[in-house]
Simulated scan of single mutants.
Amino acid sequence: MAPSTVTVAVQSRGKPIRKLPKEVQLSPDEPTQKLYEQLAKASGYSIHRLRITKAADRALVPNSKDSTIEQNGLNEKTVLHVKDLGPQISWRTVFIIEYLGPLLIPALFLYPLRPYLYYNFDKIPEPTDIQRLVCALLFLHFLKREYETVFVHRFSNATMPARNIVKNSGHYWILAGCNIAYWVFRPDSAAATARASPALVYTGLGLYVFGELANFNTHLVLRDLRRPGSTERGIPRGFGFGAVTCPNYFFEVVSWVGVYLVSGLNWSVLFFIAVAAAPMALWAKKKERRYRKEFGDKYKRKRYVMIPGLV
Rank of each mutant, 00 (worst) to 15 (best):
A2H: 13
P3C: 08
P3T: 01
V8T: 01
Q11M: 09
Q11T: 11
R13C: 07
K15N: 11
I17G: 00
K19G: 08
K22R: 12
E23K: 14
E37D: 13
L39Q: 03
K41L: 12
S43V: 09
S43T: 15
G44K: 06
G44M: 01
I47R: 08
R49E: 02
I52P: 00
I52W: 00
T53N: 09
P62K: 06
K65R: 15
K65N: 10
D66G: 02
E70M: 04
L74F: 07
N75Q: 08
K77N: 15
L80W: 01
H81Q: 10
V82E: 02
V82C: 03
D84S: 06
D84K: 10
Q88S: 03
I89M: 13
F95I: 05
F95V: 07
I97S: 06
E98I: 12
L100R: 07
L103C: 04
L104E: 02
L104F: 10
A107K: 05
L108G: 02
L108F: 12
Y111T: 03
N120K: 13
F121N: 07
D122T: 12
K123W: 11
T128K: 12
D129M: 13
I130P: 09
R132Y: 08
L133M: 14
V134T: 10
V134A: 05
C135M: 12
C135S: 13
L137N: 03
L138K: 02
L140Y: 06
H141S: 08
F142S: 04
E146I: 15
E146N: 11
E146R: 07
Y147P: 00
T149W: 00
H153I: 01
R154D: 09
N157E: 15
N157L: 14
A162T: 06
K167T: 12
K167C: 01
K167A: 02
I174V: 15
A176G: 07
A181G: 06
W183F: 15
V184L: 11
R186Q: 01
R186H: 01
P187Y: 07
A191G: 11
A192W: 04
T193R: 14
S197H: 00
N215T: 05
N215Y: 10
N215L: 13
N217R: 14
N217A: 15
T218W: 04
L222A: 04
L222Y: 12
L225Q: 01
S230G: 07
I235C: 00
P236G: 11
R237K: 14
G238K: 13
G238S: 11
F239R: 09
G240S: 10
F241C: 02
G242E: 00
G242C: 05
A243S: 11
N248V: 00
Y249W: 12
F251I: 03
F251Q: 10
V253W: 13
V254L: 15
W256T: 07
S263N: 11
G264M: 08
G264K: 08
L265H: 06
L265N: 12
V269E: 09
A274H: 08
A274P: 05
V275G: 02
A278Q: 01
L282T: 00
R290H: 14
R290E: 11
E294F: 07
E294T: 09
G296Y: 08
D297Y: 07
R301E: 05
R301Q: 10
R301Y: 02
I307F: 00
P308V: 12
G309E: 09
G309Q: 09
L310S: 04
